[in-house]
Design a protein around this nucleic acid. Sequence first.
DNA 1: TCCTTAATAGTAATGATTATCTTTATTGTT
DNA 2: AACAATAAAGATAATCATTACTATTAAGGA
Lengths: 137, 137
Amino acid sequence: MGERRFSRQRERIYQAVRASRAHPTAQMVYEELREQMPRLSLGTVYRNLHLLAEEGALVELGGPVARFDAQLRPHPHLRCIRCGCVADAEMAYDGSLDVQAARDGWQVESHSLIFNGICPACGKESEHLKGDSITWN
Amino acid sequence: MGERRFSRQRERIYQAVRASRAHPTAQMVYEELREQMPRLSLGTVYRNLHLLAEEGALVELGGPVARFDAQLRPHPHLRCIRCGCVADAEMAYDGSLDVQAARDGWQVESHSLIFNGICPACGKESEHLKGDSITWN
DNA sequence: TCCTTAATAGTAATGATTATCTTTATTGTT
DNA sequence: AACAATAAAGATAATCATTACTATTAAGGA
C-alpha cells in the first residue's frame, strides 16, 4: 500500500478515454495505444482503467464487456443491440429516482439508465438483416 | 431449423426461474436442479435459458453475469454492489422515457433501469467492512 | 548515483459463456 | 408397440473477458 507514482502508460490510457467518444472497452484502448506503444500490455490497460475509476477520474459502465467514460457527470446511455456501441443520451440524470427506488432495507446510491436500440449506422445498413437481439432489462 | 420439441429439462429450468425471486444466474439454476437431476449439464441450462428468453418466456438481465426473470412486464431492478444480488424495484416502468431518449438516428426500443446500492443483508453485516464497490452507470 | 518499491510486460490462470460432437429422447408414422 | 427422423441432452473442448502472478523496469526521494 505505497504512494501512487506517475506512469506514462496510465497517462496515455486516461487521455485515450478522454479523447474518445466511443466509451471504449479495455481492448479498444489497448489496440489504439499499441500503435504508439508496441510494448504496452493488456493487463496494464485493465489495471490502470480500474485505478482511474477507483480514484474517480473515469467511470466504469456495466454490460457484458466493461466500458469506460471520462465524462464524470452521471448520465443515461444508449446501447446498440446490434453492434454493441454506446453513446450518450441527451437526457439529464434524475437523482430523485434513487430516493423513490429505496425500499425495505436497501440503501440506494445511484442508478444506471441504459436505452436499448438500433444505432444510426446499424439502422441504415440493415433493414433486412435480422441479427440477434441483445437487450437487457 | 426444425420445429421445437418438448424437453423435461427445459420445463424444469423454466419452472426453476419462475419459482425463484432471486433473478437466478445460469449457475444458480444449474446447482439447484442438479440435486434432482444429477445428469443435467450446465450447457443445457445456458442453451434453454436463451431459448426461453428468445421465445419470450423469460427476460435476460444484463450485468457481468447474466440473470433471468420470469416476470415479463418490464420493471426496474435493484442490484447490490456488495454481493451482486438482484431484486425488483417497486417502481413502474416508464415507457415514455424511450421516446425522450431518441436522438439522431437512434431507434430506441426499451431501456433498463438498475439501481445500485446495498441490500438489507449486506447493509446489516457490514457497517465496518469496506468491500470493493461494483457500481455502473 | 543509489535505493526502495510502484508499475510494467509477459504470461498463466480463472470464470462465464459458447461451440462441438456423440448419444439420447421426442414425436410423427407405420 | 416398433421405426425413423432429428431436436435436444450430456460431456467436454474452445473462446472471450478479466484477473493473478512474477521477474524486470523505472519513478522519485535520499
